[in-house]
Design a protein around this nucleic acid. Structure first.
Lengths: 196, 196
DNA sequence: TTGATTTCCTAATCTTATTAGGCAAAAACA
DNA sequence: TGTTTTTGCCTAATAAGATTAGGAAATCAA
């Protein structure tokens, strides 16, 4: 029996519906069944387009990383130093807040042989590294600062989307405080790195 | 048919085997089937002890939070200020590194009506807050600093256990750098909070 | 010893992921 | 144009995990 007339299914629509489901019901609420239903086809039919639930999540991860990188690049254009770092962190948090499911999909590490996914990860790291570059860290300190930036951004976003920050104190203010603290720390560590 | 003679199953053994499975195979590798096999009983028999996989993970979360709090308390005894914060962060990271599965179980937020779990969460927060107290923040800044501490600790631990820090630069050194940066930030923000 | 409780079992159900194999529409081709 | 191939979807079936129902042996209380 044929399906009631509907738009043909392709990777674009799969990405779109998968994003919606993940953002609404959490990354664990995204299943082949739910996705098939959203696309108005039977679950086995999905396998004509993707190899399984793993690939759906991989698509989400790559999509999320790319959008994150585009956003990061956009908001830091024409800025440097403190302004750029601040804009980057604000955009990162906003992305995670607006797309919790897609954001969650971006966290796992790609398998070694997955070039496309790995490239998407590398791109964001490069964008962040470029933003940090202007602080003038030497060698390894850039990596340290980069890891710090990611820890901070991911830590806050992750706790916030998990609903862990329940205290009535404004989360926005806490985030601003944290960004300021990180900027202050960057100044200090930059000085320590190349004193004088 | 009776099971081959073995130690009786109780919550203690369930916690123990569940921890082992979660740490070895990841929190998602912890299933009722695997747990039952580890305990040498059939999966349905587990329901005499726990209400389901959700409760197993809840037990892990509470166990992890309590152990984390005991450790945090222990390593900060007799210390204050920088030393205490440093010890706390080092212990936190070490715990996550040694017990990745149990650590992962501690991240979700307990349901509103689960007092025991919520208490375990509150305890750690109190311990961290006490450690930060010595920095002399006023009112809301304590919450900001506490959230910063958690973001940082969780962010780094989470990225590290996820295998996201692949650059050859030493993760130990990055962590030390990050702790130093946070301490520097605390100094700056404390000054900013109550200048003079 | 008897009766209740505990602890485990088998059998069965449900959900989700996936494979196998088939049919019909659309596209390519002669 | 008719024919063949491909594509996109389907039903049926398998497998793994969580869970419920219901029963029997072992343990405990009286």
């Amino acid at each position: 029996m044929r399906q009631a007339a509907s738009v043909k299914v392709d990777l674009g629509r799969i990405r779109q519906e998968a994003s919606g489901l993940a953002n609404r019901f959490g990354i664990d609420g995204l299943s082949m069944n739910a996705l098939a239903e959203a696309l108005n086809i039977r679950p086995p039919s999905l396998y004509a387009h993707v190899s399984g639930i793993g690939e759906v999540k991989r698509l989400l991860a790559i999509q999320g990383l790319e959008e994150l990188d585009r956003t990061a690049t956009r908001v830091t254009i024409g800025k440097s130093g403190r302004d750029a770092v601040r804009a980057l962190l604000v955009a990162y948090r906003a992305f995670a807040g607006k797309n919790p499911g897609v954001y969650a999909a971006t966290i796992p590490t790609p398998p070694r042989d997955d070039k496309e996914w790995q490239t998407a990860v590398d791109r964001i790291n490069e964008t962040c590294r470029a933003v940090l570059q202007s602080y003038g860290f030497s060698g390894q300190d850039i990596i340290h600062a980069l890891r710090g930036l990611r820890s901070l951004a991911h830590g806050f976003a992750s706790l916030e989307t998990a609903g862990a920050l329940k205290n009535p104190v404004s989360r926005d203010e806490s985030f601003t405080w944290l960004v300021d603290a990180f900027l202050a720390a960057l100044d200090t560590m930059a000085l320590r790195s190349k004193p004088g």
